[in-house]
């Protein structure tokens, strides 16, 4: 699915990701934890092709393609989805309008017909319901005046509609109340399949009680300093990150 080899990346000429390697197989869930400023969001940005985030060395292969060679919208159409840590508002553009365009972009890329407005509405209503958002959110401007939690639910709704193959969730659990946390977890678990993989960035092991990862990685200073299974998250919860930094040094 995704193979990252010795990836280095910088933002504004500052190196943030340093020789990072990671292998994600179909159906797997990888959790990434690590201190603030470690480079977790940067990794998501580089993978999704955000302008300004430049890969300077290494390779990334996604579904046998050279990912770094693709425009960001092509990566999205190929099935790479990023749930943003800070979703941005687009005033006046309805959620529905953006999502229909998004779904159609993905479908036409795959050689399918555009979805009919009626079918889309059905799907969108379903998705709304399953993340606990009122139907009226479909008509509202993208993230316009949404609360923090509503923005995050909205990201999960988008993920459901786009049916991606690789989902990167950047702190989707931050700022969520306990019910919303379960909503997000349920959404991810419902989408979990043999062909779909997840990279879940989080600060809280609590989320991993609901979304059980196959691997947990610790990212510090731009590289993965430790990998393990779910128990690593528990250990981190108990001990923090400093012992790892000592270990690495």
């Amino acid at each position: 699915m995704l193979t990252i080899k010795d990836l280095c990346a910088s933002v504004e000429d500052k190196e943030i990701i340093r020789q990072l390697s990671l292998e994600v197989k179909p159906g797997e869930i990888h959790a990434i934890m690590g201190p603030n400023g470690a480079g977790k969001s940067t990794l998501g940005n580089v993978l999704s092709g955000r302008p300004g985030y430049e890969a300077t060395a290494g390779t990334v292969t996604f579904k046998e393609m050279d990912l770094l060679d693709l425009d960001p919208e092509i990566r999205a159409r190929e099935g790479l989805f990023l749930a943003f840590q800070y979703p941005v508002e687009i005033p006046g553009v309805s959620n529905m309008e953006l999502l229909k365009a998004a779904v159609d972009a993905r479908r036409t890329h795959a050689g399918q017909e555009e979805i009919s407005a009626i079918d889309f509405m059905k799907m969108a209503r379903e998705a709304c319901k399953s993340v606990g958002l009122d139907q009226s959110f479909l008509k509202r401007g993208v993230n316009e005046g949404f609360s923090g939690g509503e923005k995050k639910r909205n990201e999960i709704m988008q993920m459901m509609l786009m049916e991606p193959t690789l989902c990167i969730l950047d702190e989707t659990d931050s700022g969520l109340d306990i019910d919303a946390l379960q909503v997000v977890a349920r959404g991810v678990n419902a989408m979990r399949s043999e062909e779909r993989s997840f990279i879940v960035v989080t600060h809280y092991q609590r989320l991993l009680d609901f979304i059980v990862p196959d691997y947990v990685h610790v990212l510090a200073n731009g590289r993965i300093v430790k990998s393990g299974d779910k128990s690593l998250a528990l250990e981190l919860e108990a001990k923090g990150y400093s012992w790892l930094e000592d270990e690495v040094a």
């Binding site: 425009d71 919208e73 159409r77 687009i90 365009a101 998004a102 972009a105």
Partner: peptide
């Protein structure tokens, strides 16, 4: 904004 543009592109829009 660049952020708005990127959000759209990340959802597959050119």
């Amino acid at each position: 904004s660049d952020d708005q543009m990127f959000l759209c592109q990340q959802r597959g829009l050119d």
